[in-house]
């Protein structure tokens, strides 16, 4: 209960101060409303995985690693490989994260990232076929290392950077030869998510932890170059006009991030 009282009182004070600052057109950290914190991507950080990347958005850091295994295909798709996305909100990453099995927040985040990648069809799972009853399974593990706000966008970014970094394993006699590769996975599109939150009357792109504490509405939109590929509303409500405006912003910021990814 102590935590709750602190959170409620603090967030009221924070909200008042924040609304005051926002009414002058800038955010606590000096950003414009539609501006991301500095974004940095580092690839091939885990040598034991077939692909990996760390994405930093401001102080938020998320690691994604890709591992292949030989698995059974799903019964309704015997010729296709599988891709499984899982997220861990590491207890070290935030005072609010606790050890234990994945909670609803990490499940939701993993499923939003998964939907964005899957809808964008960036991985051709039919190329994962090995033999009858044998296909490649691609495990994408998302590790949130430091949560300074907006881990969803950092996770999608690290995930797509990981897919760009991933090498296809060599297969011999239906088994993976570890450490030998046949070429890059080459994702065919670059899905990116853009998270926006409403504080007072203002929509803020890429919320900081402070902004997340006082948000009224949260919305994540995944985009490719031409399409919306995922949407998820978190807390709160919005009008359809706000939704349409948010899509516009998501395409713009998404294109910025796609440029970064191609560097």
């Amino acid at each position: 209960m102590g935590e709750e009282v602190k959170d409620v009182i603090m967030s009221h004070i924070r909200r008042d101060i924040m609304n005051g600052t926002l009414s002058t057109g800038i955010r606590f950290d000096g950003r414009k409303f539609d501006e991301y914190r500095p974004i940095e991507i580092q690839r091939s950080v885990i040598k034991t995985a077939e692909g990996s990347a760390v994405a930093r958005i401001g102080e938020t850091q998320v690691l994604v690693a890709a591992k292949f295994d030989v698995v059974k295909p799903f019964a309704d798709r015997p010729k296709e490989g599988v891709m499984i996305t899982n997220a861990e909100l590491l207890p070290m990453a935030s005072p609010g994260f606790e050890p234990g099995p994945p909670d609803e927040n990490s499940i939701e985040m993993a499923r939003v990232v998964d939907r964005a990648l899957r809808s964008a069809e960036c991985v051709d799972v039919s190329s994962f076929f090995i033999d009858d009853d044998k296909v490649l399974g691609l495990y994408l593990d998302i590790y949130v290392l430091n949560h300074a706000g907006n881990y969803t966008d950092a996770a999608t970014l690290a995930a797509i950077a990981t897919l760009m970094d991933t090498q296809m394993p060599k297969i011999e006699n239906g088994k993976i030869v570890r450490g030998e590769f046949t070429g890059p996975l080459n994702p065919t599109s670059l899905p990116v998510t853009t998270t926006m939150v409403k504080v007072g009357e203002n929509w803020l792109v890429d919320p900081s932890r402070d902004e997340e504490r006082v948000l009224e509405t949260a919305l994540t939109i995944g985009t490719t170059e031409e399409h919306v590929c995922a949407m998820q509303k978190g807390r709160g409500s919005l009008s359809k006009e706000e939704l349409f405006d948010a899509m516009e912003i998501a395409f713009k910021r998404g294109d910025d991030i796609r440029k970064l990814l191609k560097e």
């Binding site: 939907r115 964008a120 949407m231 516009e248």
Partner: peptide
Amino acid sequence: DKKILLVQMDGLLTK
């Protein structure tokens, strides 16, 4: 109020 209280989406759609 005609407020959107849930929106989720998958697949590919234009604006």
